[in-house]
Design a protein around this nucleic acid. Structure first.
Lengths: 341, 341
DNA sequence: TTGTAGGCGTTATCAT
DNA sequence: ATGATAACGCCTACAA
C-alpha cells in the first residue's frame, strides 16, 4: 500500500527552464523547426533527451485536432483469422504513424456500438470493424459520427459504404465445382449458425455451383456449426447419421473443417477415401492437418492492409472506392479426391 | 479528391449555448454531478444526446492527467498464443474502463523500445509486454519512464520486477517424466532457436527429468526449430535422419509439434506407435490433430488477466507481487504411448 | 532567431 | 444551483 504517487512527466516548460529559453522555443526545437538556431536545437534536444522528456500526445492532439490514432473493433482477437487481419492493419497503421486502439465486441451488436462510441470519444481518426454485426437500426447512430469507418467482411451487404470483402460467392462456387468435378454426387455444406453475411454468400455459391451442374439442392445436406471446431464436429456427426451421408463436405471455414475432420476420424472413416473435405480461410494449420486440407485462401494480412489503405484515404479527406472485393484462391491439397466407386 | 474537411465535433460550449447555460454546468451535468439541478441535468443530457455530442477523452485526459489507457506490446498479434493472452488483457482492461493500444514489436528489441516510448508519449497509464526481448541495455531507458510495466513470459529472468510467467521448468520436467514413465529411452527435445528464456527453461526441465531418472543427456537429441510449424518440420527431419532416431519428442510448443507431426506422417511413420510426441501450450488445435496431441496447457487468457490485475494495482499506486508463476498442466492425449517392444 | 499571448476542450476552484 | 476564471501541455500566430 505504498501509494507512490507517480511524478508528473516533464513538460516543455520544464525543459525551457533547464535550457533557459521559453517553452515555444522548446516546442519548435523539438520538432526541428528551421526557425530556430541549429545550435539551440541541438542543445534543447540534448537536454530533453537526457532528462527523459516525452511530448504529450494528448496535449498535442488537443491543439492540433489530430490524434494519429485509429480504432479496430473485432469480434474477438483470440481468433486466428481475426488476429491476422489485425496484424495487417496494425502494420499499415504503424507505417503511417498511427497507433491503434483494439477492442473486442464479442459479436454483440450493443457492445460493438458502445465500442465505436468510445472510440469516437477518444477522437480516433478512423475505425475498422471486422465482421460487424451492427444492423440497420444503428445505421443512423453510426452515420452521425463523422469518423470514417471501413468494414471487413461485414455482415450485411451494402449497409455501409466502405468495406473490404472476400469474393465469397465466386470462391465457394469454385470450391463446390472442384468437388463436383471430382465426381461427388452428395455434397454437403457445413455452415455457420450465426447468420453472417459470409455464410449466406458461401451457401449461395454452393447452390449456384449445384445449379450450374444441374444437381439437386438437398436441404438435409446443409448443416450448421458455430464457426469453431466443436460446432464443426457436431455438425459433421449430424451429417454422418443421415440415411445417405454425403461423400463430400464443404465447410464454412477451416475451424469448422478441423472439427469435422476430428469427427470423421473418430468414426473410423478416412479422408479423402471415404469422405472429401474442403475448408475456407487457409489458416496456418490447414497444410498440417492429416491429410492436408483443401481450402479457399483468404489473404488476411492483405485484407487488413487494404482496409487501412482505404481508411487512410478517407481520413485525408479523399473519397475512396466503395467496396473492395478481394479474390480468393482455391488451394487443392489432399483432403479432396474422387469418391470410391 | 473531395477534401471534405470533417467538421469539428461539438464541444461542451456548443451544448452550453443550446441549453442556455455555461459550459462548466454542462460538464457537471453530463457527469451527473449532485451539485446541479436534476431537471437541468436531464435537459442538458437530452440536448447532448440529440445533438450527438461526445466528450473529448483527450481534453479530459489533459486536465485530469488520467487517460484510462494501457499499452500492449506483442511480438506479433498474428500468433494464436499471443492473441489469446491479449484477449485476456483486453477483457480485463475493458472491465476496468481502460482502452488498450496494441503494437507489434516483431521481436525486434529496437522496435520494442520505440513502441514503449511511443506509448509513454500517449500517456498510457501502464504497459504489458509479452515475450520481451529487451535486454539489460534498455533497463535504464525503461526505468526512467515512470509507467508501470508488466511482462508476460519475458526473455530474461529477474530483469524487471513485475511479470507473469508459466512454470516452465516444472512443466517440462513433468512432460519429460511422462515420456520416461511410458518407457522411452531416447527422448528428444525440439526447441526454439531464438534464445527465449522459456526455451532455456523448458530444456532445463527436460534435463532435470533425465537426470532424476538417471538417463544420459544426449546432445544430438536436442534440435532447434523456429517456434512455428515449418521449423518443427525441419527439426523433426533432422531427428529422423539420426543413426538412432528418438522414440519420443518433446516440443518447445504446439506450433513446432504441428510441424513435427507433419514430418512424421510424411515419412510414413505413425504417432504414437512409432514415435511419441508431446507439445506445449495446448493451443486450440491440439485436441484436433491426428492423433490428438499430448501437451502442456498454459492458461493464456488467464495469464493476460493476471498481468492486467498486477498492472491495475501498480497503476493505483499499490505495490504488487514481483512475479507470478502460473502452474501449467500436462494434458495427456493420444500422441504419447509406450514405445513398441 | 526568440518571446508573448491566445486557444484547443475539459475539469476544478472559486465566487455568487 | 450556477457562473466566472484558471489550468492541463502543447502549438501557432504575431510581435519584437
Amino acid at each position: 500500500m505504498a501509494q507512490n504517487t507517480r511524478p508528473k512527466p516533464l513538460s516543455i516548460k520544464d525543459i525551457a527552464r533547464l535550457a533557459d529559453v521559453t517553452h515555444p522555443t522548446v516546442s519548435r526545437a523539438l520538432r526541428n523547426s528551421p526557425l530556430v538556431n541549429p545550435r539551440t536545437i541541438e542543445r534543447i534536444q540534448r537536454i530533453a533527451r537526457e532528462s527523459g522528456y516525452r511530448v504529450s500526445a494528448v496535449a498535442r492532439g488537443l491543439v492540433t485536432q489530430k490524434t494519429n490514432t485509429i480504432g479496430v473493433v473485432v469480434t474477438t482477437i483470440a481468433d486466428p483469422f481475426v488476429s491476422e487481419v489485425v496484424s495487417g492493419i496494425e502494420h499499415a497503421a504503424n507505417d503511417h504513424g498511427y497507433s491503434v486502439f483494439l477492442a473486442d465486441s464479442y459479436a454483440d451488436p450493443d457492445r460493438e456500438v458502445r465500442v465505436v462510441h468510445l472510440f469516437a470519444e477518444r477522437r480516433v481518426e478512423g475505425i475498422v470493424v471486422t465482421s460487424s454485426r451492427v444492423g440497420t437500426r444503428y445505421l443512423r447512430i453510426l452515420s452521425e459520427m463523422k469518423v470514417p469507418i471501413v468494414l471487413i467482411n461485414n455482415q450485411r451487404r451494402g449497409e455501409f459504404v466502405h468495406s473490404v470483402m472476400i469474393e465469397n460467392v465466386e470462391a465457394s462456387r469454385l470450391a463446390t465445382q472442384h468437388l463436383i468435378g471430382l465426381g461427388h454426387e452428395r455434397i454437403a455444406y457445413l455452415g455457420d449458425r450465426y447468420g453472417y453475411q459470409s455464410d449466406t454468400e458461401r451457401l449461395g455459391g454452393y447452390r449456384q455451383a449445384l445449379k450450374q451442374a444441374r444437381r439437386p439442392f438437398l436441404p438435409e445436406l446443409v448443416v450448421h456449426g458455430d464457426g469453431k471446431p466443436e460446432g464443426g464436429r457436431q455438425a459433421m456427426e449430424t451429417l454422418r447419421s443421415l440415411p445417405q451421408p454425403p461423400t463430400a463436405v464443404f465447410c464454412y471455414n477451416d475451424m469448422s473443417a478441423l472439427g469435422a475432420l476430428g469427427a470423421i476420424h473418430q468414426s473410423g472413416l478416412r479422408v479423402p477415401e471415404d469422405i472429401s473435405l474442403v475448408g475456407f480461410d487457409d489458416l496456418f494449420f490447414a497444410s498440417y492437418t492429416q491429410p492436408p486440407l483443401t481450402t479457399v485462401r483468404q489473404p488476411r494480412q492483405r485484407m487488413g492492409l487494404l482496409a487501412m489503405e482505404i481508411l487512410l484515404k478517407l481520413m485525408s479527406g479523399q473519397d475512396s472506392a466503395d467496396t473492395i472485393k478481394v479474390p480468393a484462391e482455391l488451394i487443392v491439397r489432399e483432403s479432396s479426391a474422387s469418391p470410391r466407386a
